[in-house]
Nucleic acid binder design. Structure first.
Lengths: 255, 255
DNA sequence: CGACTCATTGAGCGAAGTCAACGTCCGTGG
DNA sequence: CCACGGACGTTGACTTCGCTCAATGAGTCG
């Protein structure tokens, strides 16, 4: 097993640990997970729509997205996954899915067999609970995305997405909220925002002219974090990246 | 305990059972859940935003929605819950939330204490898994809503929502997909669809003129199910209401 | 009866989409 | 080394879908 996969698993375990109290034994069990690694180029499927799953996909490097297609050929990205994210953890309990997982930029994936994840979850109920909790956070993000595409105009919408990715990437140790790489093209951002690439381009310019953020290539430089968060109506609470709060210690397995 | 609460719990247990294999003992444990029942009028909060949770809310009668507010006062419904749905099951693992739960029509709720649910989940890992699975289905629905507001025009959007509610209500034994009551006003539908009430009204008329569906008051009569599903680009797979498939028997707790 | 919510309809506007053209960058292969 | 194609970003002109504002009716509940 390469050091790359070790650090990928470590990033995943770390992400879980930030949200759920896990002891050494449980962390050790998580760190012993492993799987086959492979790399795909931008815009190619990691998992195709309708495909049956026997593995979950851990992002090691790059950026992956969950894509859903509409009849007329347009598509919508419903989730973005960065290094350390286990893309389809919920496929453990609901393996049949209608969406595809695709790389937005060259992306390295580690396929972790369901059986391994199930063994860990079965042996350590607190790990099962941590998995469930992470799925809940994914759902919170999804919920915010509904608000974003449903009720915010183009500038707020883009601002919100930038803020979300800034916090998540910062939390993952992949930059700071003020400066990071967002490995997506404008037309991929359009698919995430329910917009057209043309309008994303104009909106990017508008945010630059408002001196909020400069997006150059895939590099993002936030000039005015507060202004951007205000425009995007962004409150990071839903990402649950902060330290544990008291209520987080409530546990299904040890109430 | 009133017979109303018994049948509400039964509906919830039944919903879980349709998606997850549970034995008699597990079902019995679920059926022994109980809690305080109360009724709220339309448009009043069942749980307010930011409130800390010690209970999950089971819908006994009526229709409830999860509401999120945007700065400018507009709001977005991110989920709809019907009788038999446990609204905030995921609050078990992520109690702090930014959204409010509100009744769309006069609604009766049973507040089930977290501790009770936790005890059942702790005692029966398969029940915990069933809870997790139901949360995953909620997330699938959310994902579809992102697609709906992000990439479909008004007519398809409304058609998709009608189809979704038709299947869910039919599955809950509250009507058929051809004829059911949708306990929401046009302006509430607008909040769910990311539209204005004025445009919902026009879209309702358009669907009637296309002879797809007649919405009179809160009564919905589907005239052309296939046409409606085609327009809404609707595929019920994501609702996971069908009979168990082979892969659903994979279990975290008994692989 | 009056106040309220909800549905309905018209007129006008504006945010975002569509269509189209063009430039840059980059990888690949002759 | 350069020619070529493809992906991506940028910009302009025009269109349109859905929003805003506004008025009116129908139904309901206290």
């Amino acid at each position: 097993m390469s050091s790359g996969s070790v650090s990928a698993i470590a990033a995943f375990a770390d992400r879980l640990y930030k949200r759920s109290p896990l002891n050494d034994e449980e962390m050790h069990a998580l760190l012993s997970l492993n799987g086959h690694m492979f790399t795909v180029r931008a815009n190619v499927d990691i998992v195709s729509s309708g495909e049956d799953r026997r593995h979950a996909c851990l992002v090691v490097d790059g950026l992956a997205g969950r894509f859903e297609e509409v009849v007329d050929g347009r598509r919508q990205i419903t989730a973005l996954y960065m290094p350390g994210d286990m893309c389809d953890l919920h496929s453990l309990v609901a393996p049949k899915v209608g969406w595809a997982l695709q790389a937005l930029s060259p992306t390295t994936i580690m396929r972790v067999p369901h059986v391994q994840l199930m063994q860990v979850a079965r042996s350590y109920p607190k790990v099962a609970e941590a998995f469930w909790r992470d799925c809940s956070v994914d759902a919170s993000i999804l919920s915010q995305w509904v608000v974003n595409v449903g009720r915010r105009d183009a500038r707020s919408r883009l601002a919100h997405l930038i803020c979300e990715m800034a916090i998540r990437l910062e939390n993952a140790g992949l930059g700071t909220r003020y400066s990071f790489r967002l490995q997506a093209s404008q037309s991929q951002l359009a698919d995430a925002l329910g917009m057209t690439s043309v309008h994303v381009n104009r909106t990017v310019r508008a945010l630059r002219e408002a001196e909020l953020v400069i997006m150059n290539g895939r590099k993002v430089e936030v000039q005015d974090w507060n202004g951007l968060a205000r425009l995007g109506d962004f409150d990071e609470g839903y990402l649950q990246v902060g330290p544990w709060t008291a209520d987080k210690h409530k546990s299904v397995t040890a109430a």
